[in-house]
Nucleic acid binder design. Structure first.
Lengths: 230, 230
DNA sequence: ACACCATATATAACAGGGTTATGCGATACT
DNA sequence: AGTATCGCATAACCCTGTTATATATGGTGT
């Protein structure tokens, strides 16, 4: 079956263009005509490739999950799993701040899907992949004797804390201060680590280590073909 | 019918109608024509009273904050501030689950506003009022020697945890299970309490107490307010 | 009481965005 | 090569937010 592949990356280019327009012009810019024009096509391209705007926006949301996963994947595990968890939190936050509009679209369009469930069933999608990084680091913390209990509930608690912090911060609810990481996020990580079984001293040291050790990664276009877009 | 009339506050009726339509038909139903028809008016009503859909949606979001605040206010403080914090978390979750679409609109339209900042400045708005309940219970926990440190960062951590959990749960990311409160939210509350200074035993007991003691309050229309919102 | 004005509302038209109908040209299979 | 199929452009269609305009209602000043 066939018949394709002529200007085929039009589908990917549409998603790229949508992400770019979203970054530049906010949600208002996510319009079929604008996106199509951005790739030099007519609005029909949206329909032949996606069937409608809804599916295109879903693809944009998926791209957001991909970037989140890529940023989390860039956190290389060390021998301190608690520090790694803090680094994952910083990477999570970085993803949201790097592209707040995309982050908002990503999570507002994922309603009804279950990421945790998917990760448990082994069927990988991007969202569950992101949760998987948290889950694996949590398992390592338990194996190392730093945390007690079961990995899944512990990871879900950590995810809640990080996601809530990031959501509230990027929505501006903590104010425009720039100290929020040191004032809230790092202490939150330390608090959670202690509550999950770590000692206060070890948790604080890992918090410092994670904060000092993490640096934003150069994760660019995670869309399949890595053509540098410009 | 005489044209004018009993215009018993059309402005409030529009918000009521919007909230109702949102509950029934989802975000798609939030349309000027539908809302106006619901109150028996033409779309002009939206413009004379709000100036446009944006302001009406802001009013809907504010109504969401009011309901959140009302549900939190219904949690009567006991002599166990940590149990009260868990009850607040359950009330927060209840608000979101009672009306998920409104909850989503509320927080997606509050971008850029700072609730924490407003609470600090003393100028009350509905969002900061909601945060205030968390903050006061946290202060009581510190005064009681259960938590250590400063109230604001501690309350911000608790808010992050609860908000993240609620957001992820109502978005379906934890799956469709019904055990999430016992499996994740209550343990999260206990974890946070321990991390903030409480002993493991006391935190667990307060977790149980909060879970057992909280019951959904009958908080209905908070729109019709002659309670002087100042 | 009358004239006047401000406001609220209905009607209708306008603008812009998603979607669909249709035709054409290019691709790939026979 | 012939032809069926697919991608895509053009243009129309519909729905939704918005604006322009006219009218009626209620209050206000004299």
């Amino acid at each position: 079956m066939t018949g394709k592949t002529r200007g085929t990356d039009v589908k990917e280019r549409l998603v790229e263009a949508a992400v770019r327009l979203l970054a530049d012009g906010g949600p208002e810019a996510l319009q079929a005509r604008k996106i199509a024009a951005e790739v030099g096509a007519s609005t029909m391209a949206v329909y032949t490739h996606f069937g409608g705007m809804a599916a295109l926006l879903d693809a944009v949301a998926l791209e957001g999950f991909r970037r989140l996963s890529a940023n989390l994947a860039a956190v290389t595990p060390t021998e301190d799993p608690v520090a790694d968890l803090l680094a994952l939190a910083l990477a999570y936050r970085h993803t949201a701040r790097e592209h707040p509009e995309l982050f908002a679209v990503t999570f507002s369009r994922s309603r009804g899907r279950s990421l945790a469930e998917v990760v448990a069933s082994g069927d990988p999608n991007e969202g569950s992949t992101a949760f998987g990084y948290l889950l694996r680091a949590t398992e390592r913390a338990i194996d190392a004797g730093r945390f007690h209990g079961e990995p899944f509930p512990a990871a879900a608690q950590l995810w809640s804390g990080v996601h809530g912090y990031v959501t509230l911060e990027t929505s501006g609810h903590f104010g425009q201060r720039r100290q929020d990481v040191e004032d809230i996020l790092v202490p939150l990580g330390v608090t959670l680590a202690i509550g999950l079984g770590d000692t206060a001293g070890a948790a604080r040291r890992s918090g410092e280590a994670g904060l000092a050790g993490w640096h934003p990664a150069e994760v660019r276009s995670s869309i399949k073909t890595d053509e540098g877009n410009a």
